[in-house]
């Protein structure tokens, strides 16, 4: 599997996700600069975390209009899988690849902590190595992760099973106690309609090695590899 990781001015988790991909595939991903609107053919596009364009205007708003994202939109429409993490999620939402928007955390604080996520479905190329209902522990690090969409959009997203992960208590209870940012309906990650684009605020790439805070995120990358090979 050949993966490409986008790099914007201000990205800072591209190295972490590149390492996670190399760990499960044995291959270094191709790093793609934001001005490159014609990068080489790839099996997976990753939009990493960070603070692209200094979070100017709105998080992800400037990056969403970059040359590389015009190409990503084209390829996503052709079915090339896109994994958008943290700032990547904000960029993908701003680019219209995913429904909704990420707002300032409800408590106005930057939150850097381990959170528990409930897997909503195993029926996707990103979550096939998990069980529906399974609880995993991965870190978050963001100030704008408060997912919001209007009622009509939310209904559509729920009806079509586009919610990928919800923040939950360690025992899997989804009652708001494990929600670090005020996200509506405790949503931590969503798919596009075809489930070929996944956006999530938590960092599975930072939970792939036992020495560094657990391995619950590793199955996400393994699942992608399995689905794409």
């Amino acid at each position: 599997m050949k993966a490409s990781v986008l790099v914007f001015p201000g990205s800072n988790r591209e190295g972490d996700v590149a390492q996670a991909i190399e760990l499960v595939t044995g291959r270094k991903p191709n790093m793609v600069w934001h001005g490159d609107g014609n990068f080489e053919k790839t099996d997976l596009i990753v939009i990493p975390g960070g603070f692209s364009y200094g979070d100017y205007l709105r998080c992800g708003a400037m990056a969403a209009q970059s040359p590389v994202m015009a190409e990503v939109k084209k390829r996503a429409a052709q079915g090339v899988p896109v994994l958008a993490i943290c700032n990547g999620f904000q960029i993908a939402a701003e680019a219209g690849l995913l429904p909704g928007v990420l707002m300032r955390n409800e408590n106005l604080k930057f939150v850097c902590a381990d959170v528990h996520l409930k897997i909503e479905t195993s029926q996707s190329l990103f979550t096939n190595r998990y069980q529906a209902g399974q609880v995993i522990k991965v870190p978050v690090a963001h100030a704008e992760g408060n997912y919001f969409a209007d009622d009509e959009t939310l209904k559509r997203v729920e009806d079509r099973g586009q919610v990928a992960f919800r923040y939950c208590a360690p025992d899997g209870t989804v009652d708001g106690t494990g929600n670090p940012n005020g996200s509506i309906r405790n949503i931590a990650g969503v798919f596009n309609e075809t489930k070929t684009v996944l956006g999530l605020m938590p960092h599975p790439e930072n939970a792939v090695e036992a020495m560094f805070g657990g391995t619950d995120g590793k199955a996400l990358f393994e699942g992608i590899v399995e689905a794409l090979s």
């Binding site: 709105r58 701003e94 909704g100 928007v101 919001f148 969409a149 209007d150």
Partner: peptide, 9 residues
């Protein structure tokens, strides 16, 4: 519509 505002919110 393209950049200055996010009309979702």
């Amino acid at each position: 519509r393209k950049l200055l505002a996010n009309t979702v919110i």
